[in-house]
Design a protein around this nucleic acid. Sequence first.
DNA 1: AGATACTTGACTAATTTAGTCAGGTTTATA
DNA 2: TATAAACCTGACTAAATTAGTCAAGTATCT
Lengths: 141, 141
Amino acid sequence: MKLTSKGRYAVMALADLARFDNINPVSLRDISLRQGISLDYLEQIFSKLRKKDIVQSVRGTQGGYVLNKKAKEIKLTNIFDAVDEKVKTVQCKKDSKKGCNGKSTKCLTHNLWDELENHINNFFEEKSLEDLVKDNVERRI
Amino acid sequence: MKLTSKGRYAVMALADLARFDNINPVSLRDISLRQGISLDYLEQIFSKLRKKDIVQSVRGTQGGYVLNKKAKEIKLTNIFDAVDEKVKTVQCKKDSKKGCNGKSTKCLTHNLWDELENHINNFFEEKSLEDLVKDNVERRI
DNA sequence: AGATACTTGACTAATTTAGTCAGGTTTATA
DNA sequence: TATAAACCTGACTAAATTAGTCAAGTATCT
Ligand code: FES
Ligand code: FES
């Protein structure tokens, strides 16, 4: 199982944003250059982040994006949810009563994968953007 | 991020194997039928499991596969390792000093993904085949 | 007016996954 | 000893997903 670029970039870009105050917007171009992410790709990502109210956009010259909440309140869960980076461990439809093999009972491993999914999601629910920024400040000392 | 079929099937098939004693070999054909996994695909998977000494093969008529260790000693880590289902969260080469953006320092999120990887691997190191079998027996009651 | 930067949707190349297929070899047992 | 069950291997392929690119806008500051 691996993390996709979309999720990785979303968090990376927001971490970049979060390093600045929430007043002066940061342009995607700057983020693109600093983080080495394609500008066009960033635009796709930020479009989604905006729709989920994680960032606010400022159009025109000197425009860019600003965090819409405090860094502490933005959890990885929220970010991943916004860009459709989802954790999927089971094969079957979760709410269906059928198993992944088409049978009427859940397969031998269903419970295990469900536990795994929760385990991973817990991590995402605990980590906030603030944690990320702090970690980077500390490492710089 | 999602789990691939190869990893899922490997664990599913071994869980099936583990329900029986370690004396009479279980044929892939039986597993294929019970678990709804393509026989040809199972063969690929078991070839890898055998190379890593997780199972033993018995050729010929009435042949099949047998667990090579006690279910308690087979952790998910071992299984995933055998079938090359690996957890990959960072983009960069781990041992390299370069970051994923080609720069000379690790990116803002590198540490975070590293933590995530450990978090997931911890789960795999704790869970054994025995846990799986027990869980299924309990549910049946 | 012009430059900067957001906005959107469609398109595509590359990669990965999830198998299939064909041709073996080994061994129990009738 | 013939035969069938079952392991064994490598090559091939279709489908899905990912990771972008590209083109054509719109808004706003200076
Ligand atoms: S994963 Fe849900 S039934 Fe198999
Ligand atoms: S993931 Fe390692 S440097 Fe970005």
